[in-house]
């Protein structure tokens, strides 16, 4: 996670570098430290440093790190030749290194020669079965080929070992949602909520999944999670407000005959409607009529 101060520092440096104000190396270091994806800029400014012998030699040992960073950025931008040059230099310097081997496998992957890349990754994993990056590359590769079930299989294998990896859970959840496997996705989102209970986005996504699953119990749970999203975002999340309305209306439909009115918070839905109307009035008055018809169709306003 990138904190606010780091983000503002990054923005400031980026602005400075874009306007030719210097500090390129500091910017590249920060990008690397925060693991943000700025491949085009890394490629541009990193190559500029690497092509200038004086600047390059002043980096000392960090020169090689920069080569690696630029190589990965180049692959991300599909400038295969630049990546190839960087990897060649690294290859010359560290001929036996696994880290360079990883880069070479990534180059194969970037070129789209899947079978060869797969072979390279497998041999890397044989040497070090705990290489997280290689595991993740494999998942990405399966996904890039459109082999979604393969990606799920790899991810599950990876999560069996590294079960505290949030990003992997999140990726798996999104894949399951894309395949409409909502029960599995719900499990993944629960896992995410457990590890970071205060991130509203996970609550929201979990509520979405529960709502989609349907059924009275799930709808009631979904409503609760929409409510927690509202609480965590301070009522700023439009999707959660709509979610409350949809849930209430759906619960109303389902619970009609049963007369089982267990209303913990009867006002929540009307409050959500008011908040939505207020928000639309403020930010998009011309779409207010759309909102009213939408709410009317839910038979709640």
């Amino acid at each position: 996670m990138v904190s606010k101060t780091e983000q503002s520092q990054l923005d400031r440096l980026e602005n400075q570098v874009d306007n030719g104000g210097g500090g390129d190396w500091e910017y590249l270091c920060l990008v690397r430290k925060l693991k943000v994806r700025r491949s085009d800029k890394v490629l541009k400014y990193g190559l500029a440093i690497l092509n200038d012998p004086k600047k390059r030699s002043s980096l000392g040992q960090d020169e090689w790190t920069l080569y690696e960073q630029v190589a990965i950025a180049a692959m991300d931008c599909q400038s295969i030749d630049a990546a190839k040059d960087c990897i060649k230099v690294l290859q010359k310097k560290f001929s036996e290194s696994k880290r360079v081997g990883r880069l070479e496998a990534m180059l194969l992957e970037a070129k789209g020669s899947w079978a060869e890349a797969e072979k390279a990754y497998s041999s890397l994993l044989e040497d070090n079965p705990l290489d997280q990056v290689v595991h993740k590359r494999r998942v990405a590769m399966a996904k890039a080929q459109g082999n979604i079930s393969g990606a799920i299989e790899w991810l599950n294998k990876y999560l069996e070992i590294f079960m505290a990896d949030n990003d992997a859970w999140r990726e798996l959840a999104e894949i399951y949602v894309s395949l409409q496997m909502y029960k599995q996705a719900a499990f993944c989102y629960e896992e995410l909520i457990l590890s970071q209970p205060t991130v509203p986005l996970y609550h929201l996504a979990y509520a979405d999944v529960l709502y989609t699953l349907g059924g009275l119990e799930n709808l009631q749970m979904a409503k609760k999670y929409y409510a927690s999203t509202i609480d965590l975002t301070g009522g700023k999340n439009t999707r959660a407000l709509f979610g409350i309305c949809l849930c209430t209306s759906a619960i109303g439909h389902l619970a009609k005959g049963r007369n089982k009115e267990e209303k913990d918070s009867p006002e929540l839905q009307s409050l959500a409607v008011t908040a939505l109307e207020k928000d639309y009035k403020q930010r998009a008055p011309e779409k207010l009529s759309l909102l009213t018809t939408a709410l009317k169709s839910m038979k709640i306003s």
Binding site: I230, D231, G235
Partner: peptide
């Protein structure tokens, strides 16, 4: 903890509205 959140959300929205 979630049932509590409905009330908290109500309070938040009331303040907002």
């Amino acid at each position: 903890a979630l049932p509590k959140f409905e009330h908290r959300a109500e309070a938040v929205l009331r303040k907002l509205v």
